[in-house]
Amino acid sequence: RSVMTEEYKVPDGMVGFIIGRGGEQISRIQQESGCKIQIAPDSGGLPERSCMLTGTPESVQSAKRLLDQIVE
C-alpha cells in the first residue's frame, strides 16, 4: 500500500475549527480518515494555511472531504 504526502490549503481563519477544543476535531478527522494531518504553525500572513496530509491515496481523499465539510 503506497503512502503519499500531499499539501492541502485551508483558510487561515478556519484552523481553530479544524483543530477543535483540545485538538479533538483534528484527532477525529485523523481517526476517521486514517490520514495523518500536520497543520503549519502559522500562515506567514497569507489567507491560507498549509496542511500536510500523509497516508494512502484513499485516506488523503477522505481527509480532504472531512476538512472541506468543516470549512464550508
Rank of each mutant, 00 (worst) to 15 (best):
Arg1Pro: 02
Arg1Cys: 13
Arg1Gly: 05
Arg1Gln: 01
Arg1Met: 07
Arg1Trp: 02
Ser2Phe: 11
Ser2Cys: 06
Val3Trp: 07
Val3Gln: 14
Val3Ala: 08
Val3Ser: 06
Val3Thr: 13
Val3Leu: 09
Met4Cys: 14
Met4Tyr: 13
Met4Ile: 15
Met4Ala: 07
Thr5Tyr: 06
Thr5Ala: 14
Thr5Cys: 07
Thr5Leu: 05
Thr5Trp: 04
Glu6Pro: 01
Glu7Leu: 11
Glu7His: 15
Tyr8Lys: 04
Tyr8Phe: 13
Tyr8Gly: 01
Lys9Ala: 05
Lys9Met: 10
Lys9Gln: 11
Lys9Ile: 07
Lys9Asp: 03
Lys9Cys: 05
Lys9Gly: 03
Lys9Glu: 02
Val10Ile: 15
Val10Thr: 02
Val10Leu: 12
Val10Trp: 03
Val10Asn: 01
Pro11Lys: 07
Pro11Met: 04
Pro11Asp: 09
Pro11Thr: 04
Pro11Cys: 04
Pro11Asn: 04
Asp12Ile: 10
Asp12Ala: 15
Gly13Lys: 14
Gly13Met: 11
Gly13Gln: 15
Gly13His: 09
Gly13Val: 02
Gly13Asp: 14
Met14Cys: 13
Met14Gly: 06
Met14Gln: 06
Met14Ser: 11
Val15Leu: 10
Val15Asp: 03
Val15Asn: 03
Gly16Asp: 15
Gly16Ser: 09
Gly16Pro: 15
Phe17Asp: 15
Phe17Ala: 15
Phe17Met: 15
Phe17Gly: 15
Phe17Pro: 14
Phe17Cys: 13
Phe17Asn: 15
Phe17Leu: 13
Phe17Gln: 15
Ile18Val: 11
Ile18Gln: 02
Ile18Thr: 03
Ile18Phe: 10
Ile18Leu: 13
Ile18Tyr: 03
Ile19Tyr: 08
Ile19Pro: 03
Ile19Lys: 12
Ile19Asp: 06
Ile19Gln: 11
Gly20Ser: 07
Gly20Thr: 03
Gly20His: 07
Gly20Asn: 05
Arg21Glu: 02
Arg21His: 05
Arg21Cys: 04
Gly22His: 12
Gly22Lys: 14
Gly22Gln: 13
Gly22Glu: 13
Gly22Cys: 05
Gly22Pro: 03
Gly23Thr: 04
Gly23Val: 03
Gly23Asn: 09
Gly23Cys: 05
Gly23Tyr: 07
Gly23Ala: 10
Gly23Arg: 10
Glu24Ile: 10
Glu24Lys: 10
Glu24His: 15
Glu24Leu: 05
Glu24Gln: 07
Gln25Ala: 06
Gln25Val: 07
Gln25Phe: 02
Gln25Glu: 15
Gln25Lys: 13
Gln25His: 12
Gln25Leu: 05
Ile26His: 04
Ile26Phe: 06
Ile26Thr: 06
Ser27Arg: 14
Ser27Val: 12
Ser27Gln: 15
Arg28Lys: 11
Arg28Phe: 03
Arg28Gln: 11
Arg28Ile: 02
Arg28Cys: 05
Gln31Arg: 13
Gln31Ala: 11
Gln31Met: 08
Gln31Gly: 06
Gln31Lys: 14
Gln31Glu: 15
Glu32Ile: 06
Glu32Thr: 12
Glu32Tyr: 02
Ser33Asn: 01
Ser33Tyr: 01
Ser33Ala: 08
Ser33Asp: 00
Gly34Asn: 08
Gly34Glu: 08
Gly34Pro: 00
Gly34Lys: 07
Cys35His: 00
Cys35Lys: 00
Cys35Val: 06
Lys36Ser: 10
Ile37Tyr: 00
Ile37Glu: 00
Ile37Thr: 01
Ile37His: 01
Gln38Trp: 09
Gln38Gly: 06
Gln38Leu: 10
Gln38Ala: 12
Gln38Asn: 05
Ile39Thr: 02
Ile39Pro: 04
Ile39Val: 11
Ile39Asn: 01
Ile39Met: 11
Ile39Ser: 02
Ile39Phe: 15
Ile39Ala: 02
Ala40Gly: 10
Ala40Asp: 10
Ala40Trp: 05
Ala40Pro: 12
Ala40Met: 11
Ala40Thr: 12
Pro41Thr: 12
Pro41Cys: 11
Pro41Val: 05
Asp42Ser: 12
Asp42Glu: 14
Asp42Lys: 11
Asp42Met: 07
Asp42Gly: 09
Ser43Ala: 12
Ser43Ile: 12
Ser43Arg: 06
Ser43Tyr: 04
Ser43Asp: 10
Gly44Thr: 14
Gly44Gln: 12
Gly44Trp: 04
Gly44Leu: 09
Gly45Tyr: 06
Gly45Glu: 12
Gly45Met: 06
Gly45Pro: 07
Gly45Trp: 03
Gly45Ser: 11
Leu46Asn: 12
Leu46Ile: 06
Leu46His: 13
Leu46Met: 11
Pro47Ile: 09
Pro47His: 09
Pro47Lys: 14
Pro47Gln: 15
Pro47Ser: 12
Glu48Arg: 08
Glu48Asn: 12
Glu48Cys: 04
Glu48Gln: 06
Arg49Tyr: 07
Arg49Ile: 04
Arg49Pro: 04
Arg49Thr: 08
Arg49Glu: 03
Arg49Phe: 02
Arg49Leu: 03
Ser50Lys: 12
Ser50Gly: 09
Ser50Ala: 09
Cys51Ile: 14
Cys51Asn: 00
Cys51Ser: 02
Cys51Val: 14
Cys51Trp: 05
Met52Ala: 09
Met52Val: 14
Met52Pro: 01
Met52Thr: 11
Met52Tyr: 13
Met52Lys: 10
Met52Arg: 12
Leu53Ala: 01
Leu53Ser: 00
Leu53Trp: 00
Thr54Ser: 11
Thr54Glu: 11
Thr54Arg: 07
Thr54Leu: 06
Thr54Asn: 08
Gly55Thr: 00
Gly55Phe: 00
Gly55Arg: 00
Gly55Ser: 01
Gly55Cys: 00
Thr56Val: 10
Thr56Glu: 10
Thr56Ala: 10
Thr56Arg: 09
Thr56Ile: 07
Pro57Arg: 12
Pro57Ala: 12
Pro57Met: 08
Pro57Cys: 05
Pro57Gly: 12
Glu58Leu: 07
Glu58Asn: 05
Glu58Ile: 08
Glu58Tyr: 09
Glu58Gly: 09
Glu58Lys: 10
Glu58Phe: 05
Glu58Pro: 08
Ser59Asp: 09
Ser59Gln: 12
Ser59Asn: 09
Ser59Trp: 01
Val60Met: 06
Val60Asn: 05
Val60Asp: 01
Val60Gly: 00
Gln61Ala: 14
Gln61Asp: 14
Gln61Asn: 12
Gln61Cys: 14
Gln61Val: 11
Ser62Asp: 11
Ser62Asn: 13
Ser62Ala: 11
Ser62Arg: 12
Ser62Phe: 07
Ala63Ser: 02
Ala63His: 00
Ala63Trp: 00
Ala63Asp: 01
Lys64Thr: 08
Lys64Asp: 01
Lys64Gly: 03
Lys64Trp: 02
Lys64Ile: 06
Arg65Phe: 15
Arg65Met: 12
Arg65Trp: 07
Arg65Ile: 09
Arg65His: 11
Leu66Lys: 10
Leu66Cys: 14
Leu66Ser: 11
Leu66Phe: 06
Leu66Met: 13
Leu67Ile: 14
Asp68Gly: 14
Asp68Lys: 14
Asp68His: 10
Asp68Ala: 14
Asp68Gln: 09
Asp68Pro: 01
Asp68Leu: 08
Gln69Thr: 11
Gln69Gly: 14
Gln69Glu: 15
Gln69Asn: 12
Gln69Trp: 02
Gln69Phe: 06
Gln69Val: 13
Gln69Asp: 15
Gln69Leu: 08
Ile70Asp: 04
Ile70Leu: 15
Ile70Asn: 04
Ile70Ser: 10
Ile70Lys: 11
Ile70Arg: 13
Ile70Gly: 05
Ile70Met: 12
Ile70Phe: 15
Val71Cys: 10
Val71Ala: 10
Val71Arg: 09
Val71Gln: 13
Val71Phe: 08
Glu72Ile: 10
Glu72Leu: 12
Glu72Asn: 05
Glu72Arg: 15
Glu72Gly: 15
